[in-house]
Every structure is written in structure tokens, then in C-alpha cells.
Amino acid sequence: MPLKELAERRAILHRKSDPQTIVKHALDDVQLGKVAMVSSFGAESVVLLHMISQTAPDTPILFIDTEMLFPETLQYQKDVAEELGLTNVQVVKPSREKLLEQDVDGILHTIDPDACCALRKTQPLEDALEGYDAWITGRKRYQSGSRAELPVYEKSGRKIKINPLADWNAAKLVAYIEEHNLPKHPLVARGFQSLGCAPCTTKTKPGEDPRAGRWRGQDKSECGIHIVDGKVVRQRNAA
């Protein structure tokens, strides 16, 4: 079955399913093939990570360490994996050789942030996903204008992408975290609603789009990991 048709059929099938059901079915769906989860271990990541831990704690979880993340994020990744019993977290890093060739001084993000994201995040993840047919993400429609029409299942290049939390809002996420007494990212209490690399992430002000602190002041709202039919679609951060 063509990937686009498969994604559309699954989107219809799960149009009223809760995230836990979507996760369980995705991991059991033989037509999807081999499935991994990609997690930033960021501000809201613990919700989906907990759902995975309750369904299949040995699910491959790909964590991209760009080598520019906040120290708090690196520690949080270890703490959450241990607390939730996640046994297959795979830390993915950029190629040492390519870093020496393209960003030996670590300042590429100030000159060409798109190239920096490609070097440190997009390409390493593409390489890590090579052995998988589908992947689960934590993206949500409420996060920014560019994600407002986010489907639960979508074709992305040569793979299927699954977004179990697509229709959840901030209130639902907070309620879930509180209900299950899940560990919170330490930077959330300091005003960070969306977390990425330290040099390109700032705090958000009350009422701002949750991703307003990512690449603030730049015509950029995505790192490039989330693509449509193999092409990066960039939009301005929502006002």
C-alpha cells in the first residue's frame, strides 16, 4: 500500500482515538513496519515518554544530542529514562568528522542557523532513522501556527510519521504530568516553554506562542527535522 494512502487510512481510523491507543496501535501495526520514537526530552516530552513506558519500555527512543543542548536537558534525559524504565534510549550525535569540517569553532549557528541544524540535528537523525519505517513524535497543533493542521498520521518522505498528541493542548499536558507525578524539565520553571539548543533558545513571555523563544527574531520556526514529502517547509513563528 502506498505510504500516503496508509497514513490517510490510519488518520481516519484514529480520528477519535486517545494518544495511548494511538501509541499502542502504532507499535503493534505490522503494516507500519519498524517504529521508533524521536524525543528531545524537552519541556513536554515526558508525557509521551510515559505513555511509551506503559506500553513498550523497550521501544527505540532516539535522542539527538547536538552537543549544544542545555546541561539541564542532558541530565533530564538520563533522569527520565531511569525513572520511567526506558531501556532503549539511543543517544545520536553529529558526525565528528563533519563537525571538524563545517563547524570547528562552534559558531555556525550565528552565521547560518539552517546549516547548523542540518549538521547537528537533521542529518544525524536521518541517519539514525535509516533502519526504521515510521517514527513517533511529540508535536502538537497548539505549539505554533505552522503546526495548526498537523495530522495524527502523515507521510514524510519515505516514512510514516505519527503524532499521537496532535490535538492535545497545554492544559491537557499539564494535567497528565500532574496526574502521573512525572518529573518536569527544570528549565520550564525558569520560563522556557520550548527547549532546543542553548544558543538558539530564549525564554518566552506570558501570552507568547510556545515556540516564540526558538530562533527568536529569525525567519525560522523549525529545525528541519519535520519535513513534508522530503522538503523542509519553513514558516514564520506565529505572532
Results as ranks from 00 to 15, higher is better:
Arg120Gly: 07
Lys161Trp: 04
Arg96Gln: 13
Tyr153Leu: 04
Ile111Ala: 07
Gly42Thr: 04
Asp133Tyr: 12
Lys161Tyr: 04
Ile64Tyr: 02
Ile227Glu: 14
Lys203Gly: 03
Leu62Phe: 05
Ser95His: 08
Val228Lys: 05
Ile160Gln: 00
Asn88Arg: 09
Asp18Ile: 13
Thr201Glu: 08
Ala118Ile: 10
Thr55Pro: 05
Ser194Cys: 06
Asp114Glu: 15
Gln143Asn: 06
Val174Lys: 11
Tyr153Asp: 03
Arg236Met: 14
Ala166Ser: 07
Glu154Asn: 12
Val104Ile: 10
Arg9Pro: 02
Lys155Gln: 15
Ile111Phe: 12
Pro124Cys: 12
Gly145Ser: 13
Ser45Ala: 02
Val104Pro: 03
Asp127Trp: 06
Tyr176Cys: 02
Gln102Glu: 12
Ser40Cys: 04
His109Leu: 11
Lys159His: 09
Pro19Phe: 05
Leu99Ile: 11
Met51Val: 13
Tyr76Ser: 01
Ile177Lys: 13
Gln193Asn: 10
Pro186Ala: 02
Lys98Met: 13
Glu222Val: 12
Tyr132Phe: 15
Lys78Gly: 05
Arg96Pro: 01
Ser17Arg: 11
Ile225Lys: 02
Gly157Tyr: 10
Trp168Thr: 01
His14Ser: 00
Val47Ile: 09
Asp105Lys: 07
Pro183Arg: 15
Ala11Asp: 14
Cys200Ala: 05
Gln235Ser: 15
Val89Gln: 00
Tyr153Gln: 06
Gln193Ile: 02
Asn88Phe: 12
Asn181Gly: 08
Ala36Lys: 10
Leu182Trp: 01
Ala198Leu: 15
Leu150Glu: 01
Glu5Asn: 11
Leu6Ile: 11
Asp114Gly: 08
Gly85Thr: 00
Lys184Arg: 15
Glu72Val: 06
Asp219Gly: 10
Ala81Leu: 01
Pro57Gln: 11
Val232Cys: 11
Lys16Asn: 12
Leu69Val: 04
Lys24Gly: 03
Asp112Cys: 11
Leu165Trp: 01
Pro2Ala: 06
Leu69Asp: 00
Ala118Gln: 13
Pro210Glu: 04
Asp229His: 09
Lys220Thr: 08
Gly196Lys: 00
Lys16Trp: 13
Cys197Trp: 13
Cys116Leu: 03
Phe63Tyr: 07
Gly42Val: 05
